[in-house]
């Protein structure tokens, strides 16, 4: 099911004017911000499809930057987020692409800072709901509306068992899982949506698994992060 609950239909509370082009764009930005873990120094944003055609009129640029600054969908600072980015020292560039995207409202965000780089691609699918489709060239899907673990690790036997063994100790129920790898025995990424909040301690235990490279946590639920 693309839409999971009543608040994906009634809601979010948001600053206008467009749920797909404004609220959804904020959430795309926030997912990227969560995964990056801090405010990036540079953000290079590419818009596709309807985003490319109408992003200025809908304030999609203001919204995605607001998301990267960790604003929520109803933050009154959204209309002035570009000033906010300047004050916080985040340099932003926008591009549009004519390359066909899987969904008409797609954005790609390339973030740099502190010697790190991250690329997140996702789409705004309506009513402020989003679907992430790719992280650093791994094809992984998730919505950000559940507590989500985004794990970069070696592709080796037993890795999933090691991860789920820890989730089991914490009594965490998995609602959805996705996995992609670049090559056999190479780099892999696993995305796990769970039903209860992910603590720092749990993330730390997963980080200590042999062959685990990075542990990202995303949780966009209003008032619960």
């Amino acid at each position: 099911m693309r839409f999971k609950d009543v608040f994906s239909i009634i809601g979010p509370a948001m600053i206008g004017p467009s749920s797909s082009h404004t609220a959804g764009a904020i959430r795309l930005g926030r997912v990227a911000r969560c995964l990056f873990g801090s405010r990036p120094e540079h953000a290079d944003i590419t818009f596709y499809g309807s985003f490319a055609d109408t992003y200025q009129g809908h304030g999609t640029d203001l919204a995605i930057v607001g998301g990267l600054l960790d604003y929520d969908t109803d933050d009154p600072r959204i209309p002035t987020s570009l000033d906010g980015a300047e004050e916080e020292g985040m340099d932003v560039t926008f591009r549009t692409s004519r390359t066909p995207a899987p969904h008409p409202n797609t954005a790609r965000m390339n973030l740099k800072g502190g010697g790190r780089e991250l690329t997140v691609t996702g789409a705004s699918i309506g009513g402020g709901n989003i679907e992430i489709s790719s992280i650093n060239s791994f094809d992984v899907k998730f919505t950000g509306m559940y507590p989500t673990l985004v794990l970069s690790h070696e592709d080796r036997p037993g890795m999933i068992a090691d991860i789920t063994a820890i989730l089991r100790i914490w009594n965490m129920n998995i609602g959805y899982m996705d996995l992609d790898r670049k090559s056999r025995n190479g780099e892999a990424m696993t995305v796990i949506e769970v039903d209860s909040p992910i603590s720092g301690k749990l993330a730390e235990q997963i980080r200590s698994i042999g062959g685990m490279q990075e542990v990202g946590v995303v949780d966009l639920r209003e008032g619960e992060s």
Binding site: I9, A13, G127
Partner: peptide, 18 residues
């Protein structure tokens, strides 16, 4: 009109139809 002037609304189901 509140939506179009970047005011606070509830998307039902979207902002365009709020």
């Amino acid at each position: 009109e509140v939506n179009a002037s970047m005011g606070r609304i509830i998307a039902t189901p979207t902002a365009g139809s709020c």
